Simulated scan of single mutants.
Amino acid sequence: MQSIGMPLLNDRFYPVLQPKGPDNFANPLKLLAQRLQFIDPITQQSNDWRCDELNFN
């Protein structure tokens, strides 16, 4: 994401490793994604969310 100019906001590990500290839930990670697909490791339920239109304005 960094290479295309859309880094993960509030990421403590990338692109520069930040000092270890407590999680800050007031500033969660912000990821821009068109699709999110995964299998829940507990329920084994398949999840698939899509956004057909992205609006950056």
Rank of each mutant, 00 (worst) to 15 (best):
Q44H: 12
N47A: 01
R12F: 14
L29P: 00
Q37L: 08
Q45L: 09
M1Y: 02
M6Y: 09
D40C: 11
G5L: 04
P19I: 03
P15R: 05
L29M: 04
L29K: 06
Q45A: 09
L32V: 13
P41T: 13
S46Q: 07
N10C: 01
N27S: 03
L29T: 00
P22S: 10
R50G: 00
W49H: 07
S3Y: 06
S3K: 08
C51D: 04
G5T: 01
S46E: 08
K30L: 10
Q18A: 15
F38V: 02
N10I: 02
Q2H: 11
S46V: 05
R12Y: 13
L36R: 09
A26N: 14
C51G: 15
G5Q: 03
S46D: 07
I4M: 01
K30T: 09
N27K: 12
N24Q: 11
L17P: 03
D52M: 11
K20H: 13
Q18E: 12
F13V: 14
K20Y: 11
D23I: 04
P7D: 06
I4H: 00
N47E: 01
L32C: 09
G5P: 01
L29H: 05
Q45F: 08
L8Y: 06
F38S: 04
Q37C: 15
R35K: 09
Q45T: 14
L32D: 03
D11K: 03
A33P: 09
I4A: 00
M1C: 01
M6F: 13
M6C: 11
L54M: 13
Q37E: 08
M6V: 08
R35V: 02
D11W: 04
D40M: 07
K30S: 10
L32K: 13
I39W: 08
Q37I: 08
I39M: 13
N57S: 10
